[in-house]
C-alpha cells in the first residue's frame, strides 16, 4: 500500500531524512517511533505531500510522488485517498461538528447532501461523537475534538490513514479514549501509519514498528522485538 524509497529531505542545510526506505502492506498498522528530531513527523508529512522532499520517491494508495514540484492536481488526488489526523486536531472552529465532517465530501465529492450527512452521522457514532453533531469544536474536550478529527478524515473514505502524534496534546484519560478509536479502526482492517510516543498503543495494535534516529531507519520489526516486553 505504501512504498518509500531512499527518501531525502533537507531543511536549512540539515538532512532531516537521510535515505529512508520502508514498506507498509495493505491492512497493516505501522508505528513510527524514535526520539524528537529523528524525522518521524517529517516522514509522515512527506507521505501526503504536506512537506516536499529532495530525493527518493513515495508510492501510496496507487499514487506516486517524486522529488520536486508535483503536476497540478496530483497532490489533491493523492490526499483524497490518504486521511490525516494532526496533533493539534485542527478542527474548523467556524463550523459545527457535523459540518466539519461533511465539508470535505461536500466540497470535493459528488454525492447528494443528505447522503453525505447520513454517512457523517454514522462516522460520528463510530467515534462516539454522534450526540455532539450540532456542537461547536470550542465547546468540546481535546479527546472529543480528536475523535471528530478522525471522523473528518474518514469521511473522505481514505485507503490509508496517517496519524501525527494524535494523543500528545491529551491527558491520559483522553488519550485512552482516542487510542480506543484508533485501535478499533485498525481491527477493522484500516491501513495506517501512526507517529507516536505511546508504546502501549504500539504493543496493542502495531503490525510493525519502525524506529528512526537522525533521519535514518534504525530498526524495523514487531512491537516486542523493537520495544521489548511490556512493563
Amino acid at each position: 500500500m505504501i512504498d518509500v524509497l531512499a527518501l531525502v529531505a533537507v531543511r536549512s542545510g540539515t538532512r532531516i531524512l537521510d535515505g529512508v526506505s520502508l514498506g507498509v502492506p495493505e491492512g497493516s498498522v505501522t508505528t513510527l517511533v524514535g526520539p524528537s528530531g529523528s524525522g518521524k513527523s517529517t516522514l509522515l508529512r512527506c507521505l501526503n505531500g504536506l512537506e516536499p522532499f529532495s530525493g527518493g520517491s513515495v508510492t501510496i494508495a496507487g499514487h506516486r510522488l517524486a522529488a520536486g514540484p508535483q503536476p497540478p492536481g496530483a497532490l489533491e488526488r493523492l490526499r483524497r485517498d490518504v486521511g490525516m489526523v494532526f496533533q493539534q486536531f485542527n478542527l474548523f472552529p467556524h463550523l459545527t461538528v457535523i459540518d466539519n465532517v461533511t465539508l470535505g465530501p461536500r466540497v470535493l465529492g459528488r454525492r447528494p447532501a443528505d447522503e453525505v450527512r447520513a454517512a457523517a452521522l454514522v462516522l460520528l457514532d463510530r467515534v462516539g461523537m454522534g450526540r455532539f453533531a450540532a456542537a461547536r469544536p470550542a465547546t468540546l474536550s481535546g479527546g472529543q475534538q480528536q475523535r471528530v478529527a478522525i471522523a473528518r478524515a474518514l469521511a473522505m473514505g481514505p485507503r490509508v490513514m496517517l496519524f501525527d502524534e494524535p494523543t500528545s496534546a491529551l491527558d491520559p484519560r483522553m488519550s485512552a479514549e482516542v487510542l480506543d478509536v484508533i485501535v478499533e479502526l485498525a481491527r477493522g482492517g484500516q491501513t495506517m501509519v501512526v507517529v507516536t510516543h505511546d508504546h502501549g498503543f504500539a504493543r496493542r495494535a502495531a503490525t510493525q514498528v519502525v524506529e528512526l534516529a537522525s533521519g535514518r531507519v534504525q530498526r524495523t520489526g514487531t512491537a516486542e522485538a523493537i520495544l521489548g516486553a511490556a512493563g
Binding site: 490518504v82 490525516m84 466540497v107 470535493l108 473522505m156
Partner: peptide, 20 residues
Amino acid sequence: GQLEAALALGMSKWQALRHV
C-alpha cells in the same frame, strides 16, 4: 494548521482558502 487540515482532505489551495 487550518490550511493544512483542509489541504490534507484533498482540497486545492483555493478551495481551502474559500471554505476554511
